[in-house]
Write a protein that binds this DNA or RNA. Sequence first.
DNA 1: ATTTAGCACTCAACAGACAAGAGTGCTAAA
DNA 2: TTTAGCACTCTTGTCTGTTGAGTGCTAAAT
Lengths: 343, 343
Amino acid sequence: MELSERKRKILAAVVDLYIVTGEPVGSKALCDNLDFTVSSATVRNEMSELAEMGLLEQPHTSAGRIPSQKGYRVYIDTLMKKRPVTSEEQRYIDSLLLPSAYDPEKLLDGVARALAGMTKYAAVSTTPGGSGADIRAIQFVQTSRRTAMAIIMTSTGAMKSRVFHCDFDLTPDILRVFFRVLNEKLAGLPVATVTPAYIQSLAASLGEMTMLMSDALMAVLDVAQDLMQTEVCLDGEMNLLYHRDLGQSEIRRIMDFLSRPQELSRLLMQQSNGLKVLIGEESNRPELSESSVIVSRYNVAGREAGAIAIIGPTRMNYGKIMSNMEYLSGSVGRMLTELLDTE
Amino acid sequence: MELSERKRKILAAVVDLYIVTGEPVGSKALCDNLDFTVSSATVRNEMSELAEMGLLEQPHTSAGRIPSQKGYRVYIDTLMKKRPVTSEEQRYIDSLLLPSAYDPEKLLDGVARALAGMTKYAAVSTTPGGSGADIRAIQFVQTSRRTAMAIIMTSTGAMKSRVFHCDFDLTPDILRVFFRVLNEKLAGLPVATVTPAYIQSLAASLGEMTMLMSDALMAVLDVAQDLMQTEVCLDGEMNLLYHRDLGQSEIRRIMDFLSRPQELSRLLMQQSNGLKVLIGEESNRPELSESSVIVSRYNVAGREAGAIAIIGPTRMNYGKIMSNMEYLSGSVGRMLTELLDTE
DNA sequence: ATTTAGCACTCAACAGACAAGAGTGCTAAA
DNA sequence: TTTAGCACTCTTGTCTGTTGAGTGCTAAAT
């Protein structure tokens, strides 16, 4: 059976209506929301065929219809009308991000917060990660008599620091040694080079300085490994509590998943470029089988970098949210790219 | 009516039993949990008097008794036996904290996480805050052509940084100027001195350098204000979902409160030294009227500094949790004090 | 060949009735 | 003062009947 124009309109109307009311939509109610007039009986016939095709389903015999996951899929792919972002919203989004535009990690943190605030769902963002980055410089700053901070800056604008402690008093001279030795050895190398093994061999090659530098080396290793990881920022988990289509146990399952950053970031990073919607089972995650994920990868300097995403009930206002996310991920990419250019 | 020894024992037994079962406890069940033998009828009489005194209450006529908030208060103040922390637990707690013992903020973050993990409730911790701290030094590190990082170290071992952007290319010389000028003017002063007004007047006094330094000044102001604030670390909010005595709406109210860091930190910081339990209404917060807060202030170098706390349902295992928290807040205070000493 | 009106049918949701069970309060005896 | 016994109360679960929304089907209308 193929999808006639009228069926398409009816499916779209069912989804639209269901999204706003949250109630199964019946034939009568639907009639009032169509841009052509037919009787409820006709609509009933069409709906029953849509159900046969697997696009609608019935909670029980005498209830209205709700979209199936497959129905949402068709809706999103071909029926939905994207609601363009108003310039006011654009200004609002940009104003949220701008204050932290000079630090990738803070920026992505702000993105998650903004996204959660705008959508009222749980929001996630991942930082670009360090896989393609080179070490540009390593700085040392004394922070107390026996502690100092190691800071690594990368070619992609990322930057991390770690305070470390030595068992002897630090002096500017010692810090200068740290600086000279480590920049000599590491500057220009990909961050990924700095593995425990590499640091070990580096330490071995330092001769009598090994002892002096071991704390600093460990700190640098630590920071480098931190830089390699794509950081996962999470916000608005609480928002999930306020959606009546998510039950207690459903919420718990989602929260469980959200508390495992590695899996979360893997799910996001394996999506291809652009905007993707994973409806229920499509994510292949049992914990998310009743909820939807909207992911948008963002590009930095033309290369696929991190991702932003929201997680919520399957019933959500896709049109509005998707266009907002599209704009947001564009903004993020642009800001991070600019950050790179000015380096 | 005064509290006979037998009444005290019965009240204690009711609370103990209720804490483990979560069910209203009846006279029969209670008989088996007393260290003396009386009939259920006697127990019934005693319980009915305890109810009259406002220490127990009945969900409905034909149910067992549960402790009232006043009952919990008496239990905690005079009946409860604290369960000492085993040395194994001590080692476990210390092992969780040690890795981040060199950075107050990370440490308190770790404390919140540890506390949430141990108790299965929502945990909060606050950093000491900068009210008593002096600026020890301000460092500048170039992070890209036009961006640099300003780092303030304080006399209390706290440290914060902020990346800022200039509209001109930075050079080591310029950074040296930043360093010299700002340390000359600000080092040794209380962090609290650095207000917008103060920075403004400082800027005015710099003459032709004002333009050059304005971005750096703003960054320093920002960092100083950040340092003044006691940071609030939150963890384990999700844990609340798993307690059956907290209803959906109850959880929401708590989460609402938890999402307002200023009020949260105010509540904690207004508690006096040591370990305090706020049962339901005692916190004077409508949002917390059905839940309990256990707060423990910790001392750094003998002075009251921050606080750690957990928030959960009124029915919790006070004995165990309170002793754990007592030990934990002692550890935190000790670590932060040591951090101070080595400076 | 569609579309529509009409009608019987189904099922969730709600409310009332009833039995079972837990626990109490009271009374009278020990 | 304590205890045994008993009537009483109130929740919980189950069962029943009713209501109403919405369907599917059929036969008439377009």
